[in-house]
Simulated assay, not measured.
Amino acid sequence: MMNPKPTSVEEYFSWFPPEIQAKLQQMRETLREALPHAKEVISYSMPAFKTTEVLVYYAAAKKHMGYYPTGSGVSEFKNELSGYVTSKGAIQFPFDQDLPLELISQIAQFRDEEAKLRAELKKKR
């Protein structure tokens, strides 16, 4: 059987135990605050925030919260992220640690500015 695809952020959250739901909600609220004009969507079966493009995704894994701010979001903050497992476009925040909400917010706002610049450049073409 294929993994089910959530139709809403609420449905996605409902698949996890309460303690994980609390972390997901914390991530969601932080991103809502950082990106008040962005739309919440499900993309690649994960909650995400979108303006002219998807800015960031997040998802619960077995032992960590995955945060996916694309490659630029990871590389731009590589010094601040040195204590976390990262890959090209992903960051892992272990569930047994508090989420670095300020850093999550800064990365989201960086991605928002990046998307605005990209949209402006497209308009000028």
Rank of each mutant, 00 (worst) to 15 (best):
I91H: 01
F49A: 09
Q26F: 13
E76Q: 15
Q25N: 14
M27V: 09
E120G: 11
I91R: 01
M27Y: 04
S72F: 11
S72L: 11
K5Y: 10
V9E: 10
A108L: 05
K78G: 01
Y67K: 02
D112A: 15
L24D: 11
D96P: 06
E10D: 15
M65K: 08
I42G: 02
G66T: 04
E80D: 06
V56C: 01
F93G: 01
T7F: 15
V54F: 02
M1Y: 12
T51P: 01
F49P: 03
K124A: 14
V85H: 11
A61P: 08
L103V: 04
Q21M: 07
T30H: 05
T30N: 05
E10A: 12
Y84G: 00
L121N: 13
H64M: 03
L81M: 01
V9S: 11
A108C: 05
E40Y: 10
P18G: 07
Q92P: 07
Y58S: 00
M46R: 09
R125L: 14
L99P: 04
P4C: 12
Q92G: 06
K116D: 14
A60K: 01
N79H: 04
Y67M: 08
S72Y: 11
E33K: 14
W15T: 03
W15C: 08
L121E: 13
R125I: 12
F13W: 09
V41R: 01
R32C: 09
L99T: 02
A60L: 07
E80F: 00
A38E: 06
R125Q: 13
P69M: 06
K123A: 10
Q21F: 04
E29P: 03
A38Q: 05
A90K: 00
K62T: 08
A38R: 06
P36L: 05
E114N: 12
T7R: 15
L55M: 06
Q25V: 14
L121F: 13
E102N: 13
D96A: 09
K5L: 09
K5I: 10
E80L: 01
Q26G: 07
S87M: 09
V85Y: 08
Q92E: 04
Q109D: 03
E114T: 12
K116Y: 13
S45I: 10
Y67S: 06
N3G: 13
I107K: 07
A59N: 06
W15I: 06
P18D: 05
E33M: 14
E120P: 10
H64R: 07
K122M: 15
